[in-house]
């Protein structure tokens, strides 16, 4: 028996919005520690790794480890039926081939339940090595979203160049080119508005904006986003999910032919 209730159901709604355009389907792995998901997009260029810790749910019950194969577009459709104020409970029986979602209004006057079929999904889990990255940039998530959106007007790729002075995002295409430079500003009054750079070694990497724009669907989850980079390895884009977990996106770089 698996049962997990999140009082702040809107977080789960946002999590679904953050992954459903990148992944058609995915397996949620549930154990006593919480729920997690790892899946690559169909072209194997990017990967989503999502963790929701058991402590974030009340109650959380997982009698035995289970893998729930879920069509994420269907799950997202059903979650749109929950109000932002509702709690969301996810339930799955031990041998069932369905999952049930229960949405409850804050005063308990309205309770909705939706049942959905589970899927058999063949998944390849990738081993992600522990890496110390040359550059770790933290910036406001809305700012990163804006940069990706703006540079998509100019070209298909963005080159991110990180030095101790700041980080520069550049794109070029048929109409010309554009550069956006952000300086480090850890001293702003509001922590959420800070741009901070931890750098061991400068790095320059090029990525497809199409995928970064998919990642930016996670912007409503967190005021800040963390970009971790080293030359010639995949980029990590991380958003915290409140106090209960994170969604990490990995993106393979584009390399000069």
């Amino acid at each position: 028996m698996f049962e997990a209730r999140l009082a702040q159901g809107t977080l789960l709604k946002k999590v679904l919005e953050a992954i459903k355009d990148l992944l058609n389907e995915a397996t949620w792995d549930c154990n006593e520690n919480g729920m997690s998901l790892q899946a690559m997009d169909s072209s194997h260029v990017s990967l989503v790794s999502l963790t929701l810790n058991a402590e974030g749910f009340e109650p959380y019950r997982c009698d035995r480890n289970c893998s729930l194969g879920i069509n994420l577009a269907s799950m997202s459709k059903i979650f749109k039926c929950a109000s932002n104020e509702d709690s969301i409970t996810i339930k799955a029986g031990d041998e069932g081939d369905t999952i049930t979602y229960v949405f409850e209004s804050p005063n308990g006057d309205k309770v909705s339940d939706y049942e959905m079929k589970l899927m058999d999904i063949e998944t390849d889990h990738l081993g992600i090595p522990d890496t110390t990255y040359s550059c770790v940039v933290k910036l406001p998530a809305a700012e990163f979203q804006r940069i990706c959106r703006d540079l998509s007007q100019i070209g298909e790729s963005v080159t991110i160049c990180c030095t101790k002075d700041g980080v520069r995002f550049s794109a070029s295409g048929d109409l010309g080119s554009g550069n956006i430079k952000l300086a480090q500003n850890a001293n702003v009054d509001k922590e959420d508005e800070a741009v901070t750079i931890e750098m061991q070694e400068a790095c320059t990497l090029t990525f497809a904006l199409r995928y970064l724009n998919f990642f930016c669907k996670a912007t409503p989850l967190s005021p800040q986003v963390t970009l971790s980079m080293s030359n010639e390895v995949p980029l990590v884009v991380e958003y915290k999910i409140g106090e209960m977990g994170h969604v990490r996106y990995y993106l393979a770089p584009k390399i000069e032919d």
Binding site: S43, L47, G127, P129, T206, V233, A252, I255
Partner: peptide, 14 residues
């Protein structure tokens, strides 16, 4: 030009 790498070039299947 640039070539899009695959993630499987970097991460091995478990």
């Amino acid at each position: 030009g640039t070539k899009q790498m695959s993630l499987t070039n970097f991460f091995k299947k478990k």
